[in-house]
């Protein structure tokens, strides 16, 4: 629901890196998006496009890479949970350790909004 502010955040991070590298244009951005964030990738791309208009980031491809939730449990289990055929809400409701059934394991991934890397066009021999 706050895709606009997230798009602004991504835009600022990418623009900073682009300016530091004297980029002529940013070709693409790989963004890791955890499946447990409240961010809709389609809305995010739409907002990003709107924010980037008229800047170095116009026509930049925003590649959204979904990141599945992973947990660490007291019982020693570390790793993924079964997310197949589960809606967002079922996923949260049923979040539990697949080994021992603990309903409150620690989340180790799934909540990222991570600008992983950026591809850009630069002048000269940089």
């Amino acid at each position: 629901m706050h895709e606009y502010s997230v798009a602004m955040g991504v835009y600022e991070v990418v623009l900073n890196v682009a300016l530091k590298n004297n980029a002529a244009r940013v070709i693409s951005v790989d963004l890791e998006l955890g499946e447990l964030t409240h961010i809709n990738p389609v809305q995010l791309s739409f907002c990003f496009e709107a924010v980037a208009k008229g800047s170095l980031l116009e026509r930049t491809d925003l590649n959204v890479i979904k990141v599945a939730p992973e947990i660490r449990c007291k019982c020693g289990y570390e790793g993924s949970i079964n997310t197949e055929q589960q809606t967002f809400y079922d996923l949260i409701l049923n979040l539990r350790c697949p080994k021992c059934g603990n309903p409150a394991p620690e989340l180790t991934s799934g909540r990222e909004i991570n600008v992983r890397d950026i591809k850009m066009e630069v002048d000269g021999n940089a």
Binding site: G9, E112, N114, D117, I118, E121
Partner: peptide, 16 residues
């Protein structure tokens, strides 16, 4: 003009 790829690893939620 050439292309470069820069690893960033900046997480918006982590920054918050």
């Amino acid at each position: 003009m050439h292309d470069i790829r820069v690893e960033v690893g900046f997480d918006i939620l982590q920054a918050n």
